[in-house]
Write a protein that binds this DNA or RNA. Structure first.
Length: 574
DNA sequence: GCCGTTTTCGGCCCGACTGTTTTCAGTCG
């Protein structure tokens, strides 16, 4: 059983217990354990065999025992018992905005409603308004909530939300009463997907800015509208929240709404240990007085901590690192000196090699590798051995013209289902850079997929593994593999693992990137650009690397051209 | 149910907005 499957059992248990009305702290404990299990890179079954389950934060005696029960019997008796009391299906009602556990239970007990279709039916028949605590407005809200649910996808890719956020922020900056405007939430933390848009502003007259916000042309529906905050649904279905406080409280506001929830809970615990109660308004002391934080640094400084970059705020060790003065010096976009995975018209790109090179040089890069597809990938107009040699003349001509800028002759060669590569060795030997990527048969079983990637890593001509897991955001799960083994052999054979910055991929993601970096692997952040403007996707790749705690030294393409070329030479000599 | 350089028991982050209430519960982030 996978970590995720075990985590899902506890997560489901928490949902049902919440509806049942169990004490909240027990529910919180199950959720916390579920999250920790899901994000732990160690295999749950192995931990169980090694009696190491208690090393997962949030797993104590009781949950340890339950995990053992799940792994031996395949299910959890407590969950079965709760399901007998509370229909499993009832948790789907919690997806309706405005319906929480209390309402779900009431709907079930009074009207026998267990699913959204029955809820909608009851609301249309005006059966809701008679229930205790619910009136005609609640009934309308439920109908509107169901409509919103049907229209809204759960989370949006970062690459899709960022331009929308920039547009809304630019519009808000034209509001005369708004002195500062920023994005917060998971967007500011640069998570691969974003659930909604959190936007903050500073103003001496918050209500004016909130009014301005709800009247923006792109606002489709106003969900709530108070003095200091509002929630709206934009015309594209994305939800946007705005909160506004005076300038002198902007630091605490920004900290609070950047999250994550787990980071904030931890931060507030540290504050409580010092007799301080922290909220978006500032630090409240015992005597009731408030210490204001105009800037975010002030929040952390109050707790004797250095400012923690938003990308690290997931309660994954950043407080300990901050306290010990060993926060990483995170990689920045400006550290990138080139892009080692790009395509030209020689395969499925839309620009010439020279156009790609000119665009890259304009970004300040020293080099790019043109890595057109190998012929095995039929759909992409891949290169045969002969066309690889023809293309080299094209590259040589561009290099002659653009020196000292350098175009490396590369290939993105297919890792076939059996682990062999899509071009013969003698052709690969002629190239400066070989990126080997899996494109098909991504649903192979774990062992087969692992061996397939290991075969590519052991291949003497492979320099970089491209989009190693095959994940597509919201479309396709990462392929199943023993990632720890992949990383270990990548270290041994000095093969770099790609962080693909295409916002539809983000592969490796932050969690895999951190695991690889911790194990000593070298990463390479590429865009997989098929047109010059796609070089801009580098920001997303850098964002994943930052979320993975990576510094410039962990990333191959922060090297100067000279260093990169000697790294490639050394690999050839191995 | 978890957890401990203030605790092995008694805590567990904090506040805005809404609706149905006449002082607060539920939901959300």
């Amino acid at each position: 059983m996978t970590n995720k499957e075990v985590a899902d059992i506890f997560s489901r248990l928490a949902d049902l217990l919440e509806i049942k009305g169990e004490v909240v702290y027990k529910i919180v404990a199950y959720r916390k354990a579920a999250d920790a299990i899901a994000r732990d890179s160690r295999d749950i079954t192995t931990l169980w065999h090694d009696k190491q389950l208690r090393t997962i934060p949030g797993v104590g005696e009781a949950i340890e025992k339950k995990i053992g029960e799940i792994l031996t019997t395949g299910h959890l008796q407590l969950l079965d018992e709760v399901k007998a009391e509370i229909p499993d299906e009832l948790v789907t009602l919690l997806d309706v905005p405005g319906v929480g556990p209390k309402t779900a239970r009431l709907l079930y007990e009074k009207l026998g409603i267990t699913n959204i279709a029955a809820l909608e039916d009851a609301a249309r028949k005006h059966l809701i308004r008679g229930l205790p605590g619910l009136g005609d407005k609640s009934e309308e809200n439920i109908l509107r909530g169901i409509e919103t649910l049907h229209r809204r996808s759960s989370r949006y890719p970062l690459g899709e939300v960022l331009p929308v956020a920039e547009e809304i922020i630019a519009a808000l900056r034209t509001c005369p009463q708004a002195t500062l405007v920023n994005a917060a939430g998971s967007l500011r933390r640069r998570k691969p997907t974003v659930g909604d848009l959190d936007i903050l502003a500073a103003s001496a007259h918050p209500e004016d800015v909130v009014d301005f916000f709800v009247h923006l042309p792109r606002v489709g529906e106003v969900v709530s509208h108070g003095d200091v905050k509002a929630t709206v649904i934009l015309d594209n279905g994305i939800q946007a929240d705005l909160m506004v406080l005076p300038r002198e409280q902007y630091g605490s506001l920004l900290q609070h709404f950047t999250g994550s929830k787990e980071h904030n809970v931890h931060l507030r615990q540290i504050a409580l240990e010092r007799g301080l109660s922290f909220s978006e308004k500032g630090f409240q002391q015992h005597d009731g007085s408030l210490v204001l934080c105009p800037d975010e640094q002030d929040v952390y400084a109050m707790l004797d901590l250095p400012w923690i970059p938003p990308e690290l705020r997931e309660d994954q060790g950043e407080f300990e690192a901050a306290r010990q003065g060993r926060l990483p010096h995170l990689i920045e976009l400006g550290d990138i000196r080139g892009d080692l995975h790009t395509h030209s018209r020689w395969s499925d790109g839309v620009a010439s090699i020279e156009e790609m090179a000119v665009a890259a040089r304009a970004l300040g890069y020293e080099y790019i590798a043109i890595t057109d597809h190998s012929a095995s990938l039929g759909i992409a107009h891949g290169l045969s051995a002969e066309r690889v040699r023809e293309r080299k003349k094209d590259i040589d001509a561009v290099n002659a013209k653009m020196a000292p800028f350098r175009v490396l002759s590369g290939i993105e060669v297919d890792i076939m289902a059996d682990g062999t590569l899509g071009l013969p060795d003698d052709v690969l030997a002629e190239l400066d850079v070989v990126v080997a990527s899996p494109h098909s048969a991504l649903r192979q079983d774990r062992d087969t997929m692992t061996e397939r990637l290991l075969a590519a890593i052991r291949h003497p001509h492979v320099d970089i593994i491209g989009h190693p897991t095959g994940v597509m955001i919201g479309e396709r799960e990462a392929a199943s593999m023993d990632f720890a083994r992949i990383v270990a052999e990548a270290v041994e054979h000095r093969v770099a693992l790609e962080i693909n910055g295409n916002p539809a991929r983000l592969d490796l993601d932050d969690i895999h990137a951190r695991q690889a970096m911790n194990a000593g692997a070298l990463l390479c952040i590429n865009t997989d650009a098929h047109r010059p403007d796609m070089f801009g996707h580098m920001i997303f790749g850098v964002a994943m690397a930052r979320r993975g705690w990576c510094e410039p030294k962990h990333v191959l393409n922060t090297m100067t051209l000279d260093k990169l070329q000697s790294w490639l030479q050394q690999r050839r000599a191995m």
